[in-house]
Write a protein that binds this DNA or RNA. Structure first.
Lengths: 351, 351
DNA sequence: TTGTAGGCGTTATCAA
DNA sequence: TTGATAACGCCTACAA
């Protein structure tokens, strides 16, 4: 009774059942129909007795079907990514796939390394939520026939499907809401747009949007990595600036909302009198008085759509059809942080 | 230029480099030293030209080394689990392992299914943060020689290593803090302990702890799944109960803290005048005025320790040594929610 | 230093 | 309905 009661193999089961590898293989593949009732029972019994489970490694080797979906995540601690991952996982499971997650910590080097690993395991499809620089590698992967889905952001030249938010529309929703609520002077805070397409779209739309609406506005792209000094300065300057219209801050995503809320709280700013609104709904947004207004992304749906996309390409062999983009609408969740203390609702004013 | 520029294989590289499989294998294994400089260059060139990457499936098949670590998570959306996962991931990566994550949604059936999958891919080690019921399966796995590490909770009969919080000590810290802060009547809220050892330990320690300290206290185990009615009732009753000492709530984990905070806010309770404290530090705890006091778990360290444990057993072949338990200390982060409005600090009182 | 031959556990192709 | 037998891509004695 030393150690390895060695995992049993196909041959052993075959032997124990007094039959051949082929039949056992058929039993565990999808061809039980072709086996006589009696043989099926003998195999089932033997397999159970030996505690046999097919070796996916071997399977993947022969058939080329690894039954693996890979996911490249820039930051596994980002609630958005996790929420999306949850959607992805459920669909994978429902279709008999397993998920292999690789977290890249926003580091291009790790991204490249992980991508290599994922392909080494012959993932059949890949979901990417990162923006390092392995464009070339990704493109090659796509060429080799591995379906690719980008989540939340496009990637330069990579010919892949994309699932994400309708960013432009979301910004419009935000601006409309803020304007209706009575805010006229806006500060938009984002992380550096760098290569993240969604950030770029949001930023540009903000610029256009305020112009169209005759709002006063200004946008800052900040790292937020180190201390919040930069952010504090920016916000301080914004608050101090002379102006007549009520002021509001718009946060480009959940991380920004968190950082901005911290700063505002330190500065003892009353939310509402200075407006605050963010893209991404977080579990605590309702808890910070008087509640932070957000635009919720349908993260679960986004994750599900991503994998469904993948599977479709995988199974229907429309592998070469042109890239498809799926954009979801954000849902406005209005809270106190965009309610002006003594605000006259303009729609109520007599003409 | 139709489709599959077929991934190239070892033999092809060998051929292109004018050498044998063996040498190429050595090149990509850890035996470059044994090859002449010139051969190395030829192989490198050929491999690069063909875009060759070793097939992990095939590798895993022969050597039995899948280079895969599996993780079974009960709830991938739980911030605690994600934080731990982050630690796990980094160590895996540092040692050339990949992580395969399986989310079980707290469903025993899925747990079993996923466990089977993970073993089908021949993960070399398994981290478990779930408490369904596949004790038997897990035990078998362990017997078969796959190292196992339990995170946060023990599992019945399974002979596995365990990494988690020093739960008893954490509760002591909490009680000490609350008592010192002047609270004398406590309500402990937890999810049902069911099979989760950490929950059980915390609950029991709470019961003992209040007795030892002469505090008045009461504990509730609630599902929190559906609406918060149950919780609201419990808290309502607690607040209304006649008593002289200041009251405080102690939350057994982050999920509970979230739910409790919601209820308190709905009831317009001023935090501090009613104390609030929770195990698990969450990013928003500082943001809900006047700040929620927490006991932070060193999640990253816990994750790292888990994998390091695994790798040790894997490499040092101390596979059979008795299970080891590693307990980390929680760190108290005092905030306004446990500061009584007109509190006399007892340590300052003259004797 | 390099190469040959066999096998890992499975599926796929044929033949019986 | 069954069963030999040859791959799959790689690793590992063993030999040269």
């Amino acid at each position: 009774m030393n150690q390895n009661p060695q995992r049993s193999t196909l041959v052993e089961v075959a032997h124990a059942a007094g039959t051949s590898k082929t039949s056992v293989s058929r039993f565990f593949g999808d061809e039980r129909q072709r086996l006589s009732q009696e043989l099926q029972e003998r195999i089932a019994a033997a397999a159970k007795r030996l505690g046999y489970h097919p070796n996916q490694m071997a399977r993947g080797l022969k058939g080329g079907r690894s039954r693996l979906i890979g996911m490249l995540v820039a930051d596994i601690r980002n609630p958005y990514s996790v929420a999306v991952m949850h959607g992805i996982e459920s669909v994978c499971q429902a279709h008999g796939y397993s998920l292999m997650v690789a977290n890249t910590n926003n580091d291009p080097a790790q991204e490249r390394r992980h991508l290599e690993l994922l392909t080494a395991y012959r993932v059949e499809g890949l979901v990417v939520n990162a923006a390092g620089s392995p464009d070339r590698e990704l493109a090659k992967l796509a060429e080799q026939g591995t379906p690719l889905v980008l989540v939340d952001r496009e990637l330069g030249e990579v010919p892949a499907d994309m699932v994400g938010l309708d960013d432009a529309r979301a910004i419009d929703q935000a601006l409309d809401h803020l304007q209706t609520a009575g805010y006229g002077e806006l500060l938009y805070v984002s992380k550096p747009t760098s290569r993240v397409s969604s950030r770029r779209v949001r930023l540009e739309r903000f610029q256009h949007g305020i112009a169209e609406r005759g709002l006063v506005g200004e946008a800052h792209c900040l790292t937020l990595d180190a201390d919040a000094a930069e952010l504090d300065d920016a916000i301080g300057a914004f608050l101090v600036r002379p102006g007549t219209a009520p002021k509001a801050l718009l946060c480009a995503n959940g991380q920004v909302t968190l950082a901005v809320t911290r700063v505002l709280q330190q500065r003892n700013v009353t939310l509402g009198s200075v407006g605050l609104m963010g893209i991404d709904e977080l579990e605590w947004c309702a808890l910070v008085p008087p509640g932070i207004t957000t635009l919720a992304q349908p993260t679960d749906a986004i994750g599900r759509a991503a994998v469904e996309n993948l599977l479709q390409r995988l199974e229907s062999s429309q592998r070469t059809s042109p890239p498809r983009r799926t954009h979801y609408q954000a849902q406005l969740i209005p809270r106190g942080s965009t309610r002006l203390p003594f605000h006259h609702d303009r729609s109520q004013e007599s003409p």
